[in-house]
């Protein structure tokens, strides 16, 4: 039973997803699909609780053992607690971190939304977004509310942190490109030549050097398009076809019970 029920559920859900693609009946398209999607949301919610338990367990153990870098675990747990508490607060509870006002402008009978946000924590200056400055005089406040502190934390702490990590990619791309573009063999040389042409095609070289034009494009831009449209697209499509077949084969193996990663490989 421990392995049979999950197998039945897996095969059943797989068949429902297949049916909803081919069968246009409302019962299948709406109700059955909705049931599968709702079940996925329920599983994900329970999964989140398990994930939180794992996070607390692993990091509290590291702090207890004074494992290397245990200070990071303290920060992680403290942040998890603070964000969870802030997320549980009602939007009008806790310190006011920002006000927002919503207006409707009525220039010549056309209605447009405007949101004005005034941040009060840490001295952020007023941000105002006008869709039509000419009609600003006709602003009529429709709604005034306190911005939830959770949103403020996400927008002004989490988001900049994520952007910072994302920005590191530019430097990593440069080091990766440096490694890739060393012509150690004739294949690597070919790659280097193609990369140089594409790079030159991306920038307006013809503004500095007089180059022949083909089809109304500069030489390097034309070459870049030829490289991207033909050999590059052909290679990408061959990988995509292989991936699609591999995905289909894996799906069939899971649906027929040949492979059962969701059961820990047993059964």
């Amino acid at each position: 039973m421990r392995t049979t029920l999950p197998k039945i559920l897996c095969i059943g859900c797989g068949i429902i997803m297949l049916l909803q693609f081919f069968v246009p009946l409302e019962f299948v398209q709406r109700d059955m699909l909705q049931w599968v999607n709702d079940s996925a949301i329920v599983v994900a919610t329970f999964g989140l609780a398990i994930g939180l338990a794992s996070l607390v367990h692993v990091h509290s153990a590291r702090i207890r053992r004074r494992a290397r870098g245990w200070g990071f675990s303290v920060v992680t747990l403290a942040c998890a607690v603070v964000v969870a508490v802030i997320g549980l607060l009602k939007s009008d509870w806790g310190p006011v971190v920002a006000h927002s006002q919503r207006y409707d402008i009525l220039p010549n009978g056309v209605t447009a939304g405007v949101i004005e946000v005034t941040h009060t924590l840490f001295g952020y200056q007023t941000e105002t977004a006008f869709t039509n400055t000419l009609a600003a005089a006709a602003l009529v406040p429709l709604q005034q509310r306190t911005v939830p502190m959770f949103d403020w934390f996400y927008n002004y702490i989490m988001y900049p942190l994520m952007s910072t990590v994302f920005a590191l990619l530019a430097f990593y791309m440069m080091t990766a490109a440096y490694r890739a573009m060393r012509a150690k063999s004739w294949e690597a040389g070919l790659l280097l030549a193609a990369a140089l042409i594409v790079l030159l095609g991306q920038v307006p070289v013809d503004q500095f050097v007089r180059l022949p034009a083909i089809d109304g494009m500069s030489l390097f831009e034309w070459l870049k398009l030829r490289i991207l449209d033909y050999p590059n697209t052909a290679a990408k499509r061959s990988i995509i076809i292989g991936v699609a077949l591999g995905g289909l084969a894996t799906s069939i193996k899971i649906l027929t019970g040949i492979e059962k990663p969701y059961l820990g490989g047993r059964g």
């Binding site: 990766a176 990988i239 591999g246 995905g247």
Partner: peptide, 23 residues
């Protein structure tokens, strides 16, 4: 299986399973 990420792995890793090789 993501075509746009394969080049990054190829340049930064020692071995890369391309597309269907993963499956």
């Amino acid at each position: 299986a993501d075509v746009s990420q394969i080049p990054f792995f190829i340049v930064a890793c020692d071995y890369t399973l391309i597309g269907e090789e993963l499956f």
